[in-house]
């Protein structure tokens, strides 16, 4: 029944409500949706939807970004963004758009790359949270960097300092921030209210 009540249309609104209404400064929220693959017998968490808010301190994020991504990396990111923009707009030639030629920040890139990812049978941070039915809250760049989960390490490389995965009825809500944010029962409660569809 919980799956039947799941409403894709309101998913974006709920992700937005979760981080826009939070006291803490979250950079993004992603809902990883669970599905069962009958051919392999595996439970897969795939991209459901995501809301990217960005960093509050733009100057700080730009400085950080400059340190971590080379000119070649920036060119690569912009090229991919241009191609994706063409794909979405349906045009055959890559669009020339001032907005696309603006620097692609590390967290924007991390969010975009996340759309291509999935987690099988308890793999990765979201998979572990779902498989064990327990939230995972990792605070601090050091802890992310030393995590056994590839996604947590990747998040740290792209400037995140906090990553959280909270299991819900048919998936996992993941939040990330470039700020250091400690565990709060308030956020857990909000996820329970907004994402437990039954």
């Amino acid at each position: 029944p919980s799956v039947a009540l799941f409403n894709q249309d309101t998913l974006q609104q709920r992700l937005q409500a979760l981080i826009e209404g939070a006291r803490e400064s979250w950079t993004y929220a992603i809902f990883w949706q669970s599905s069962y693959d009958y051919s392999s017998g595996a439970t897969v968490l795939g991209w459901g939807d995501g809301y990217y808010k960005g960093e509050d301190d733009k100057a700080k994020s730009k400085a950080k970004n400059k340190a971590s991504s080379s000119a070649a990396e920036q060119e690569h990111r912009k090229k991919v963004l241009r191609e994706l923009n063409s794909l979405i707009s349906g045009s055959a030639t890559p669009a020339t758009d001032d907005a696309i030629d603006e620097e692609v920040t590390d967290t924007e890139w991390f969010f975009l790359v996340s759309m291509t990812q999935s987690f099988v049978n308890g793999g990765g941070l979201p998979g572990q949270a779902f498989f064990n039915s327990n939230p995972i809250w990792v605070t601090g760049a050091d802890r992310l960097a030393s995590s056994p989960c590839e996604r947590a390490r990747q998040g740290q490389v792209f400037g995140l300092q906090t990553m959280v995965c909270i299991p819900s009825a048919n998936g996992v809500v993941e939040l990330g921030s470039t700020e250091v944010i400690f565990q709060s029962s308030d956020l857990m409660h909000k996820v329970r209210v907004l994402f437990n569809f039954n």
């Binding site: 974006q12 991209w47 459901g48 990217y52 994706l84 923009n85 758009d97 001032d98 759309m115 291509t116």
Partner: peptide, 26 residues
């Protein structure tokens, strides 16, 4: 660029649109 599954297209379109807004507001 690999084909984007339909379910992710909406997310991608929204992300690109919001990015445009963010850049305009810089």
């Amino acid at each position: 660029v690999a084909p984007v599954p339909q379910a992710r297209k909406a997310s991608l379109a929204r992300f690109l649109e919001k990015r445009k807004e963010r850049v305009m507001n810089l």
